[in-house]
């Protein structure tokens, strides 16, 4: 009886360790170890297909990847894709949130529609958009020809592929920003608005001087979360173009995937992964910092 109680109190005293233990163990085993292993592999020249044993070459794989024009191009593309997609999503999302931020009949339905792209399978989305973009039978070119514009190749040409892919991302994720902002706007107090109106401020002034500063924390977090996800975009690009034509839509994620699972160059693939990893880690640090400074 008393032993049982003591045992119970042990559990109780160590609840803050015991409760999270399974989850933490899982994450350590499934995430931390693999990441460390990737770091180790990045210092080797291991190639599954060369038949040669793994040898530690220290920074040589890094050197080869950094000197690889394909890597530099993929890095640039990763950023330009993210910038294109997220900037449009932010502006559009803000506009939509401001418009919908009032009570009206069918608001629930409008919100439901906005949820649909967020919960749809990205691979399937990509394929549906490929049907739109099909240069010969696609709706996109039909619209262009009706407007008297020439047909374009959309994802079929190196010049237009990245904006075309960004457009899909914009379609899918603008509603996310809008929904987050809507929730943010709804939680604002109405007082500052009333006093601004009393002072005779214009709608634009109210937005710029009252609304925007108040939703800024929400907006920033949403934008950074979205940017991290955009940097990692994989499914849509892989399903729609596989990084092509040529390498013209190959981002870091796609390149790392090809190096790992098509070329089996595990050493060099790890180098790309380390870069991607650092990139995301830096962005995450920014989030944490931002949250802290905004809370103060």
């Amino acid at each position: 009886m008393s032993a049982g109680k003591q045992k119970g109190s042990f559990v109780e005293r160590h609840l803050h360790i015991l409760f999270p233990l399974p989850a933490v163990t899982f994450v350590v085993v499934m995430m931390l170890f693999p990441v460390l292993y990737t770091f180790f592999l990045s210092f080797t020249n291991w190639n599954l297909t060369s038949g040669m044993p793994l040898t530690v070459v220290f920074l040589r794989s890094y050197q080869r990847i950094i000197q690889e024009p394909r890597f530099v191009a993929a890095l640039g593309r990763t950023f330009s894709f993210t910038l294109m997609a997220v900037s449009v999503e932010t502006v559009l999302g803000m506009i939509i949130a401001l418009i919908l931020n009032r009570e009206f009949k069918g608001k629930g339905l409008a919100k439901l529609v906005m949820l649909l792209p967020l919960v749809s399978t990205p691979v399937a989305i990509g394929i549906v958009w490929n049907l739109f973009y099909d240069p010969t039978i696609g709706l996109a070119n039909f619209v262009l020809t009706r407007l008297g514009l020439p047909r374009i190749a959309w994802v079929g040409s190196a010049k237009t592929v990245l904006p075309s892919l960004a457009l899909v991302d914009i379609w899918q994720w603008t509603p996310m920003i809008a929904l987050i902002l809507l929730a943010g706007l709804a939680s604002l107090s109405t007082e500052p608005y009333e006093s601004a109106r009393v002072d005779g401020a214009s709608e634009w002034q109210i937005f710029w001087h009252v609304t925007l500063p108040m939703v800024m924390p929400t907006l920033l977090t949403a934008v950074i979360l979205r940017s991290i996800d955009a940097l990692k975009t994989f499914d849509i690009i892989y399903a729609m173009t596989g990084g092509g034509p040529g390498y013209s839509s190959e981002t870091l994620n796609i390149m790392a995937f090809k190096y790992s699972f098509e070329y089996f160059r595990m050493g060099q693939a790890s180098v790309i992964l380390v870069f991607l990893f650092i990139l995301v880690l830096l962005m995450s640090l920014v989030i944490m910092r931002l949250r802290k400074s905004l809370e103060l």
Binding site: A23, P34, N253
Partner: peptide, 21 residues
């Protein structure tokens, strides 16, 4: 934060080691 990092990390950075293991 530790668990949030798992959400933010690119999946492919664990996928390659998993594949081998």
């Amino acid at each position: 934060v530790f668990i949030l990092v798992a959400r933010l990390m690119p999946g492919i950075s664990f996928l390659m080691p998993w594949y081998i293991i």
